[in-house]
Design a protein around this nucleic acid. Structure first.
Lengths: 252, 252
DNA sequence: CGTTATTTTGACCCATGTCAATACGGGTGG
DNA sequence: CCACCCGTATTGACATGGGTCAAAATAACG
């Protein structure tokens, strides 16, 4: 059940979304056998409150996951990209609406069937559980971003997360795709669209990034961005970092 | 109901098919067989980054769960009270430090042993999984509080959460215990101590609450507090609420 | 190409943070 | 049991980050 060691902790735990790459699992073959459904931009895969009957794998495109508060505010809980899975950590009903940012395609697995399969397959069970741990970890990371970081830090962190997710991490100029709107980013980071714009512009002005059209960003000085992001990342704390924190904790 | 990360109570597992009372008591009896260890206020049960070797049940007192950022900021991820369990949703290493707010006592279960037991006990497995879902749900709730709510809303939500957890929810004047310091509350809500103070004072001035000493609050007008909290709670969305959200989503 | 939604920028304001001074409460020792 | 003391909480004055409202610029798409 808690066989964590079996799973290499993924490096991309801090990514803005809840879906994580799923390569290398039997899940892949299960999904591959399902039809590839199409979603136009703005269409909804499932609604918050719906019975969580399926687990989805995005084969193409990008989804936003959000909740609408009673007064109309929208909280984006995450984004899901190609190759990632959504709907695993739901119980009973979905906790957010999943809507296509771009035209998208996805395959769905029946939850009950998946559950039944997992019951007999130790490693599938462990894999799913590992996924939940990752989502939990990502949620905790997001809590820290929203609770502790200022606007610049949040945007920098968002860019870094996107970079990590895109794969290329340390390499110099990384180009990342941000198919979502500024408003989406704002709703995800707990800021306004205008603030996101200003900060992006500022980063550009200072040469940290460059824009290529509306939905592509070149990260030109990743080190500086990481520093701006608060200097913390999402991996398991290394020994030294663990110690550093312990020391910091002692200080007060 | 109102959040619960704050107070992830182990009793109110109200989701259909998960966490039946008897399932909980298995875990209870496992814990009951363990020695009751003592922690002085300020002592640490485990550190962020430590190998997550045990699961703990607080038999008395209150713990704060936190992470320290590289620059010294402290993010409190939650509080744990008597009867509650901590450490279930960790993988490999603990993701936060657990420190006693008050003098506390707790019992620990070896994680590997629990794992082994769960492997043969379907309902124990289900129970543990249900707890993880709850923690996930609570984390998502916290994300919304931090990302979308203003300072007053956050404090109101915090008080409501505490009230729900204390049990009495609808009854008029509810007295709640807040053994943590204002700074703790601030670090939990992503505010400053001063802001928390001002808002508490304001609530008092307006007759929403009354203070009894430093660590007890009387909620005198729960309805108003709930409204201030943003009018949303943590339960499964009801049908109407689901529809309302859907409508709101359509609006744009 | 033109049309329209999205983004960007600007001016202004407010909520919340910061810094600093008191006040309070509760634990301790006499 | 009382009084003192120190850490915590509260309040105040001021600064500022980020929100709001509005206008202008830009890019995506037909």
């Amino acid at each position: 059940m808690y066989a964590s060691h079996l799973f290499p902790s993924s490096r991309d735990v801090a990514l803005p979304g809840y879906g994580l790459p799923s390569e290398g699992s039997i899940l892949e073959s299960l999904f591959a056998a399902r039809p590839n459904e199409t979603l136009a931009a703005g269409e909804v895969a499932f609604w918050e409150g719906d019975v969580a009957s399926h687990v989805y794998r995005v084969s193409e495109g990008c989804l936003r996951l959000y909740r609408i508060l009673p007064d109309g505010r929208r909280a984006i809980m995450g984004f899901v990209f190609e190759g990632e899975i959504v709907g695993i950590s739901c119980q009973g009903t979905y906790r957010y609406t999943a809507e296509a940012v771009t035209p998208a395609r996805l395959r769905r697995l029946d939850r009950r069937r998946l559950q039944a399969l997992a019951a007999g397959a130790e490693h599938l069970q462990t894999f799913l559980l590992g996924r939940m741990f990752e989502e939990m970890s990502a949620a905790q990371q997001h809590i820290i971003v929203l609770g502790q970081l200022g606007a610049e830090e949040r945007v920098a962190h968002f860019l870094m997360s996107a970079a990590c997710r895109t794969g290329a991490d340390q390499k110099r100029p990384v180009v990342i795709d941000l198919p979502m709107t500024r408003q989406d980013i704002a709703d995800y980071l707990g800021l306004t669209m205008e603030t996101v714009c200003r900060i992006v512009s500022k980063f550009k002005r200072h040469g940290l990034i460059a824009l290529e059209g509306r939905y592509k960003v070149v990260l030109r000085r990743i080190g500086d961005l990481r520093e701006l992001a608060g200097g913390f990342d999402d991996g398991e704390p290394s020994v030294e970092r663990g110690m550093a924190r312990r020391a910091a904790a002692w200080a007060h």
